[in-house]
Amino acid sequence: MMFSPDASGRTRRTILKGAIAGGLAGLTLGSFPFPAFADADAKQWPQDAFKQKSEADALKALYGKPAEASDKVSLDAPEIAENGAVVPITVDSSLPNVTGVAILVLENPFTLAAAYKIPEGTKPAVASRLKMAKTTKVVAVVESGGKLYSATKEVKVTVGGCGG
């Protein structure tokens, strides 16, 4: 399964315009659940990609291609995780036209941990917190101009994030 860059966003904007033209513009927004915004849709979730057990298979399922190492991808991860249940990971990139970022934890039961869609205007820098079962290589993948670039770092995990 592959991503299509943000067709949904455009659809939504169209609906929004329609709603305003239709006379809803006078409503106070605040915390009012604006009807024109569709919520997160589980259909977007790339189920196949999250089932894969190797870097190659996960990238194939997610993007349909392999990644090449690049020093334009930066991966900030601790050398020794304080606890495998909560490992802060930041990915950043100086590459242009980034459309996606993915983080793979190679020793986890399923390789792909998280994938992010980056629409135009959003920076290719994402921080999140991940679980790691044991000492592992972590791979950050950035999709730029239709190609994949990656950076890899090893994180030592002494208290695993899967055991409880």
Binding site: R12, F37, Q44, V87, T90, A113, P119, G121, K131
Partner: peptide, 23 residues
């Protein structure tokens, strides 16, 4: 009216998940 960020998460994302990005 525009989606500025979408996260797709598997079970390896930590409890009470955190995110940071900018647009």
């Amino acid at each position: 009216g525009k989606v500025v960020f979408t996260a797709l998460w598997g079970p390896a994302v930590s409890k009470d998940p955190y995110l940071k990005f900018s647009f």
